[in-house]
Design a protein around this nucleic acid. Structure first.
Lengths: 109, 109
DNA sequence: ACATAAGTTTCCATATATAGAAACATTTGA
DNA sequence: TCAAATGTTTCTATATATGGAAACTTATGT
């Protein structure tokens, strides 16, 4: 913890490990399975914790109430990309994404 | 092209390579630099092209007009996570993301 | 050059995300 | 146990994303 390296990329699992500890394989697998955009709220929370910020402090950085942050962390499915970017920008974190195409489910014409 | 492998993960660059051809190094670098959520619209477009679908056809899959798809592809900054998931689900593609934290910019207390 | 397909834009209505404020609940440390 | 800090929920208002319809522009092929 508190690594001094320039950059590091973390998966949700790594963040989870840091803040809620190593979880049993059951829960662990469930999280990996769920690693889609649904889980974005937990990412926000994890990164915020990593920065040692309260919801109120993060809110101040962005310019919103702590209740906003709470809502984002709990119900991140209904969130705008603009908001997501705003939050992670305040947290000095970049969010990247990739697309995984499963051709098996798709008829190749 | 038209690989039969089960899954494959593509970056925006790979999708670009497929559909607008190898671009000059200048433009190429710009895209890599921009690989944040801003560029999501291009992702949608690229995956749609990969599936050989028109905007109208993709719209039918989801249940919206082609104009909706056009809007999403052009102005993806103001898009809801729910919508993003809906689109990629129709395209049989999973979207994943990761967080990159640059500690250099952040004071470690 | 023309016709058709594909993509874009505009106008409009509706649903929903964003936001603050304050009450409420939960967690934390003394 | 208690008080303070932290997080959550509810209520309200406003901004904006979603959506259809139709006009419009831009490819595409013959």
């Amino acid at each position: 913890m508190e690594t001094k390296g320039k950059n590091r990329t973390m998966t949700l699992d790594q963040l989870k490990d840091k803040h809620i500890g190593e979880v049993g394989t059951d829960n662990r697998d469930k999280y990996e399975f769920d690693l889609k955009l649904d889980v974005l709220g937990e990412m926000i929370k994890s990164v915020r914790k990593d920065r040692h910020l309260t919801q109120e402090q993060l809110g101040e950085l962005i310019g919103v109430q702590k209740s906003q942050i709470s809502k984002l962390e709990r119900n991140a499915k209904n969130v705008t990309v603009e908001t997501i970017l705003k939050v992670f920008r305040a947290l000095k974190a970049n969010i990247k994404f990739s697309i995984e195409m499963n051709d098996a489910d798709y008829k190749v014409a």
